[in-house]
Every structure is written in C-alpha cells, then in structure tokens.
Amino acid sequence: MRERLALSRPKKGACGLTGSWRVFRPVVDREKCNQCGICEIHCPDAVIDEELNIDLDFCKGCGICANVCPKKAITMVREER
C-alpha cells in the first residue's frame, strides 16, 4: 500500500532544476584561484562543493561567489540560450 500522508520527504531537486533560472553563469579561472573557499562559504544554496566545483544544474547565477572572490577568479558570463 502506498503511504498517503501529508508529509513531505527530503529529496534532491525538490524545487526542480533551479539552474534553468540562470542568466549569468559563473566561470572559474583555475589559474587565479587559490582554493581559499570563501565562495563556498557565502553560496546561499550550497552548490559549490569542497573541490570548489560549481553544480550548474542548481546554480541560480546570483553572482555572490564572483563578488566575494578575493582573487577575482570567478567571472559571470551571459548564458546563451
């Protein structure tokens, strides 16, 4: 029998692929990046992992990472769609 309860369960992508909202895409320049992790700390949606790769399925393109980066290693590039 299927459970029919007024309960929501945690699931990845519960709000859909929010990456489709994006207008500007963050591009990391690995030459300039010094792995400080400040972008990961300030990301509101935790889409930047420990190796500092950005999950573009969910990144909303807010641009906070590019703005807080002390080395200016992240640039926001317009999506072409």
């Binding site: 990845k12 990301c43 509101p44 949606d45 935790a46 641009g63």
Partner: peptide
C-alpha cells in the same frame, strides 16, 4: 538543506 531551495537568487535567508 538539499540542493536546492526555491529561494530567489542571492537570498540571504537561505544562506
């Protein structure tokens, strides 16, 4: 918070 909430881009409440 599993990726990702439906908050606006740059939302400081979800941060």
């Amino acid at each position: 918070i599993t990726t990702c909430t439906a908050a606006c881009a740059g939302c400081s409440s979800s941060l």
